[in-house]
Design a binder for these strands. Structure first.
Length: 902
RNA sequence: GCUGGGAUGGUGGAAUUGGUAGACACACAGGACUUAAAAUCCUGCGGACCUUAAUCGGUCCGUGCGAGUUCGAUUCUCGCUCUCAGCACCA
């Protein structure tokens, strides 16, 4: 029987399922290893070949670690709440739960075909009330905690109340208002990103360039009452925590930017003819003598307060104009300078000179204090503003070309700066703050860009809040009364009065009749602690038991896309730190090592149609000789870039009589790497590939495609290579294509063959550890090429089966069973390479003189360095052609430099 | 503009701390087997050149561009070009 993946793969998948081979429990005798894939959102389109890339990689690691004696946790589940299901529900009336369930079934079926070693007994789904009960629990905990700045951790609200006995005298509403300023989950009027088309608010990471990431709808700023998570006090811990993580520098850097720490000072500028003072934040207090004007954000409270009566009409007009400009317009013309003078002046803290106060939309209300001191000589934005309005530009740091542009460096000497003259700008920063502190008008200050996370969504398909309102004040439900299950509604749209869809639910209230919160949680809620739930997924008392938490700790290896860098990955870290603070989580960081698999792009194919004759298509190589238009063609009609003419003619009626201008009697298509999309006709499903080549070939091929973290186009032309490899391996082990049994021999294995086998053990082991799966696959190919037709002993086949199992588990399992084993190859221990076979029996000695090859020869293994030299010198003497020259001689043993003499 | 990656044959990609560049695979070409095709197996495959009847053998150039360090650079340093990704009025 030839290698027939379809028969063996189904068999072993059933075997694994029936015998629960991959079921994991806590086992104190073994070291633990937790490998997690980012769980997918089950969309209606199903999986394409890009999805399994990360899953296959993590599966290889899992199988490898198991063989090394680790107790491996490798679960999978579903990020099941989400916008697409809701929008589909709005269009069709079908309940999102129904669609989601169907999609999950499809995903599950597709994943099962790939032979992944998930422990499905731990499957979770974020839309399951038994799951989101614990999301609600965590939220309730956040409501009941505040961030204690002194202790630098979250503490119970009761602890805060003890420090404020005066609050007990307040009315319930006033007291709650105080508490809302501290609760980690709090309700506040906030400027939010409102998306009218989606009917909901969005988090900052869900908005890009003023458009929603999902759907690309315009987003505007609005003030709304929203639930938020106070993530900003965690900024410093989130930043510091990055240092210890084994994450790519790229993702760490993205998080650093997102947190946006900047160190500087806050300075109070007195306002002329007023007792008020204007507080600004600056990172360059050293340039304070270069201040020539101040700028307020248009949305700042000061803007109207400081408008003089003479300037009032101009200020009003400008503020009106700013309001009209949406976020998008503002981003669209960054270069445009606009602003207006308020008519008021501030007083310089050192020179006591008056400084005009302006309003400008390049200053943001939401950052710092919403006001700046402008130093045009040393800030490019202030420079542009000053040039536009002809304001003075006063250089205080030596260097640059102030006539042309702002000089922003801090490596110059201070000038025109009184007590700071002559200092380096970088050291003047500290000096300036000291002086300001003496005057009592300034202090050192650290600012973060990280904003609190807005946590309300005006949607149906999400976790309901565990919140009700008593006398108009928010309360959270106790854990015993959770979950608050998502109610049924007649339509998935906002109500006529503009309330979220939950406003349509009947009896949406607590058992005591208090109304429940109408908004739902955002997408990241369910994914922020799912890694803990997998540890103990059936627990109805807790998110996870102490015992399981202490055993599994956190995720050792997390694999998923880099697109979650500033969303899920930062929220999860925050969530975990909070759970750590309240004594639930055993560790502060959820994911020790993170690997971002590269996107697999689709490979689109094109045909070239004559503009003059829409029925004629020109082959790729000849297209320049004609005037043509490129059209996408379904990639299923194309093999190795050659078009199947028959299939193309049958594709659409208008191509029935298509004519072709061929090259070498064939039609060659053009190609390009693009996102996999239905509209480009380039989507490849893993099912198609499995049906034709089998799961093991798909697995090997996805790994062979290139480095895991690299973006790469899907290109089927190479798949034959790995398929041939498995066929060769089959023939090697079975003797020929027809044999049903193994072709075993007792002939001792040659030393050379042992060398190949042990090099394979060595290389594959190292490659898996380095996540260098593509070179591991190459090593397997070398191994089979070398050993094919020889080395057919039981021991060799056994070693090969164990090595191959992580990559091609079905093939390995079949081979293992035929070797007489009755248990899964998964349970076999990982082989160790014998160092004896890793060195060559004859050392290859290469002698170079002045970098040029002069001599090469072999010496017996074990020769000492001195012997090698002696042989080399003797041979050189015979050659006798080096006399009279200064030489540098290098001697290589097996390609390695051992020494050199001059 | 800022930050972080990347650039190696026709193609995807290999190359421990600097040490014989191009492993492995695809594509292509030639050959064997076959009535034929498929499959399989074998050979060649960066460029220029020398040598030869042809092999064998040998030389020079070659890892985006230009310098530098070094006996020796795909690898390290500096300066560019192009490209991918992220951030972007964050004071």
């Amino acid at each position: 029987m030839a290698y027939q993946p379809e028969s063996i793969e189904k068999k072993w998948q059933n075997y694994w399922a029936k015998n629960a081979v991959y079921k994991t429990g806590t086992d104190p005798k073994k070291p633990k290893y937790y490998v997690l894939d980012m769980f997918p959102y089950p969309s209606g389109a199903g999986l394409h070949v890009g999805h399994p890339l990360g899953y296959i990689a993590s599966d290889i690691i899992c199988r490898f670690r198991r063989a090394q004696g680790f107790n491996v946790l490798h679960p999978m589940g579903w990020d099941a709440f989400g916008l697409p299901a809701e929008q589909y529900a709005i269009q069709t009336g079908q309940h999102p739960a129904t669609t989601t369930k169907k999609n999950i079934a499809t995903y599950r079926e597709q994943l099962d075909k790939i032979g992944l070693s998930f422990d499905w007994s731990r499957e979770v789904s974020t839309c399951d009330p038994e799951y989101y009960k614990w999301t609600q629990w965590a939220f309730a905990q956040m409501f009941d905690h505040y961030y204690d700045v002194k202790l630098d951790k979250a503490m119970p609200i009761s602890h805060l109340e003890k420090q404020h006995p005066e609050w007990t005298k307040l009315s319930p509403a006033a007291r709650e208002a105080e508490l809302q300023n501290h609760r980690i989950a709090y309700l506040a009027d906030l400027p939010v990103n409102w998306c009218a088309a989606l009917g909901t608010v969005l988090a900052n990471d869900e908005v890009k360039d003023g458009l929603s990431v999902r759907g690309g709808h315009p987003v505007e700023q609005r003030i709304m009452k929203q639930w938020s998570l106070r993530i900003s006090p965690y900024a410093e811990r989130l930043l510091q925590g990055l240092e210890k993580l084994e994450w790519s520098e790229a993702v760490k850097e993205m998080q650093r930017n997102w947190i946006g720490k900047s160190v500087g000072g806050e300075v109070d500028f007195a306002i002329q003819n007023s007792t008020d003072s204007l507080r600004i934040f600056t990172t360059r207090p050293d340039t304070i003598f270069g201040v020539s004007f101040m700028v307020l954000a248009p949305e700042s409270d000061w803007s109207l307060k400081l408008a003089s009566s003479a300037q009032r009409p101009a200020v009003d007009a400008y503020l009106e104009e700013c309001k009209k400009r949406t976020e998008r317009d503002r981003l669209a013309d960054v270069k445009r300078v606009s602003g207006v003078f308020t008519g008021s002046y501030a007083i310089h803290p050192f020179t006591k000179k008056p400084i005009p106060i302006w309003i400008g939309d390049y200053v943001l209300g939401g950052y710092g204090t919403g006001a700046i001191m402008a130093v045009p000589a040393h800030d490019s934005r202030d420079y542009a503003f000053a040039k536009h309005f002809s304001l003075p530009i006063l250089p205080v740091v030596e260097g640059g070309n102030i006539e042309k542009e702002a000089f922003e460096a801090t490596d110059g000497k201070m000038i025109n700066s009184d007590f700071m003259n002559g200092l380096q700008a970088s050291s003047a920063i500290t000096r300036a703050i000291q002086e300001l502190e003496k005057l009592g008008v300034g202090t050192r200050k650290v600012n973060y860009r990280l904003r609190d996370a807005i946590f309300s969504r005006q949607r149906y398909w999400g976790e309901p809040f565990p919140v009700y309102y008593k006398d108009g004040l928010p309360k959270v439900l106790p854990t015993e009364e959770l979950p608050v299950a998502l109610p049924e509604v007649d339509k998935y749209l906002p109500t006529e009065t503009g309330e979220p869809p939950l406003g349509r639910a009947k009896n949406w209230q607590t058992k005591d009749g208090y109304p429940l919160e109408l908004s739902t949680m955002p997408g990241f809620a369910g994914s922020s602690a799912y890694y803990f739930r997998y540890m103990d997924p059936k627990n109805s008392k807790e998110l996870a038991s102490k015992e399981s938490l202490n055993y599994w700790q956190n995720v050792d290896l997390y694999i998923g896309g880099a697109e979650h860098a500033t969303g899920h990955l930062i929220y999860s870290r925050f969530w975990c730190k909070f759970l750590f603070d309240i004594g639930f989580a055993p560790v502060e960081e959820p994911f020790k090592k993170l690997v971002n698999q590269g996107l697999i792009q689709g490979r689109s194919s094109y045909v070239y149609r004559l503009k003059s004759d829409v029925n004629t298509f020109v082959s790729y190589g000849l297209r320049d000789k004609y005037d043509t238009q490129a059209l996408h063609v379904d990639v299923s009609f194309v093999e190795n870039d050659f078009l199947n003419l028959e299939a193309f003619r049958n594709w659409r009626p208008e191509y029935k009589n298509a004519k072709f201008i061929l090259e070498d009697d064939r039609y060659r298509c053009g190609s390009a790497a693009e996102k996999m999309s239905k509209s480009f006709y380039n989507v490849i499903n893993p099912d198609q590939v499995v049906a034709r080549y089998g799961a093991d070939t798909l697995r090997l091929f996805e790994m062979f495609l290139g480095p895991l973290e690299q973006f790469k186009p899907w290109n089927m032309s190479g798949i034959e290579g790995v398929y041939r490899f498995l066929q060769k391996a089959w023939r090697w082990t079975h003797g020929n294509d027809e044999s049903e049994t193994l072709s075993l021999s007792t002939t001792p294995v040659s030393e050379e063959a042992m060398r190949v086998l042990h090099q394979t053990i060595d290389k594959v082991t190292k490659d898996i550890q380095n996540l260098s799966f593509n070179t591991a696959v190459s090593q397997f190919m070398i191994c089979v090429n070398e050993l094919s037709g020889k080395a057919q002993t039981k021991e060799v086949f056994e070693t090969f089966a164990v090595l191959l199992a992580p990559f091609a588990p079905h093939f390995a399992e079949e081979l293992w069973a035929k070797l007489g084993h009755t248990t899964s190859v998964t349970l076999a221990p990982w082989p160790a390479a014998n160092p004896q076979f890793l060195v060559a029996n004859a050392m290859k000695i290469v002698v170079q003189v002045n970098g040029k090859l002069r001599d090469q020869f072999e010496a017996p293994v074990g020769s000492s360095e001195a012997e090698v030299f002696a042989i080399a010198m003797a041979r050189e003497a015979v050659q006798a052609q080096l006399a009279g020259k200064t030489i540098r001689k290098q001697i290589y043993v097996n390609g390695k430099l051992v020494n050199f003499v001059v």
